[in-house]
Computed example of a mutant assay.
Amino acid sequence: MGSIVRVAAVQAEPVWLDLAGTTEKTLALIADAAGRGAQLVAFPETWLPGYPVFLWTHPVPEQLPFVARYHANSPAIDAPEILAIREAARRHGITVVIGLSEKAHGTLYMAQAIIGPDGEVVLHRRKLKPTHAERTLFGESDGSGLQVVDTPLGRVGALNCWEHLQPLVKFALYAQHEQIHVAGWPCFGIFGDHNSLGTEASMAITRTYAIEGGAFVVVASQILSDDGALVFAVDGTRPPIYTGGGGVARVFGPDGGLLTAPLDPHTEGLAIADIDLSQIDIAKAFADPVGHYSRPDVFTYAVDRTARTPAHVGAIDDPTLPHADLPAAVAETAAV
């Protein structure tokens, strides 16, 4: 593992509610990042097939056609579109962190996948707690995805959007000595910039993540253009969506410093930085919240990373099932 790593953060507009179109655009962005020497490229939250802005802007009855279209364009983790992205990562020898609306049978999850330069998925995780209106469309995850993984570039982790506002979720990754963190964000323009959902507040908590965790943070975000907003028209009427671009792609250093020049929030592009992992040692010499600056004698913290399933279906005497030690009649009922 070398000390210097070139990373790229995507700031772009998806082909809204169009899985095939957004996948094609993804492949082009991967090639662009690799052609510019990037070893890692990060995509925004639910990049495939775009963030569901209709959850915040439409009454529930008007959402239903968009919900149906969103389900139809949300890929399974083993879908052909994900396989194509994996192949692009392998072909270009680049690590890809992709955000997707993952379809698992009848439920959607706000997922992220870290794909190594060999095309293998080294981490598949889902947003632990969708935020506010998102909970009407997406399911929750268990703790199994709260992982930092070893890669040829260093120890890499990822979170979505307001997971960066949850102190215990963040600490779970800090405790695994994360070096490169991908922060996936949606299109901020829909919220304006005057509340806790806007750009200024969200970038403040992302910058705080870099300082607290002593990690490099690669921030990827979507753009919503005026033309893009027309996708969400109802009966030909453009919805009351504030667009304003909304892009915020950037890279923060472990001391909180901004390492990339700000991109125009209306313009697609890549925020690219050469990061020196040895700088983490300097940052953590001042404050390491999971090392010399911690107090485990005062505070106790545990993370349950057990993968959960809503039903255990199998033989009554299967020793891996939680009811295996129950009386047969009770176990039979528990297994159904």
Rank of each mutant, 00 (worst) to 15 (best):
T131K: 00
T199E: 06
Y209T: 09
D318F: 10
T260D: 07
H58W: 06
H181N: 08
G93F: 11
G244C: 05
G246D: 09
D297H: 12
Y109M: 05
R305L: 05
A33G: 07
H124N: 13
R295Y: 12
H124T: 07
H105T: 11
N195S: 15
D281C: 03
Q147V: 03
V218S: 07
H312E: 14
A88T: 08
A183P: 03
A34M: 10
T320A: 15
E13P: 03
G245Y: 05
L19I: 04
D274P: 04
R36V: 05
D32K: 13
F43C: 08
P14I: 06
P130Y: 02
E62W: 04
C161S: 13
L258V: 15
G2Q: 06
V251K: 00
R305F: 01
G245T: 06
T22P: 06
K284R: 15
E178K: 03
V219N: 05
A311H: 14
D18C: 09
A302L: 13
E332L: 13
L19W: 01
P265R: 10
S3G: 03
Y242E: 14
H71D: 07
L153K: 06
F171L: 12
F188L: 15
S101E: 02
H164K: 07
P117S: 11
V219T: 13
P61F: 11
V330S: 08
L137I: 09
P239V: 03
P52G: 11
P296L: 06
A261E: 15
S101Y: 02
V298N: 08
I280A: 02
A249W: 03
A302T: 14
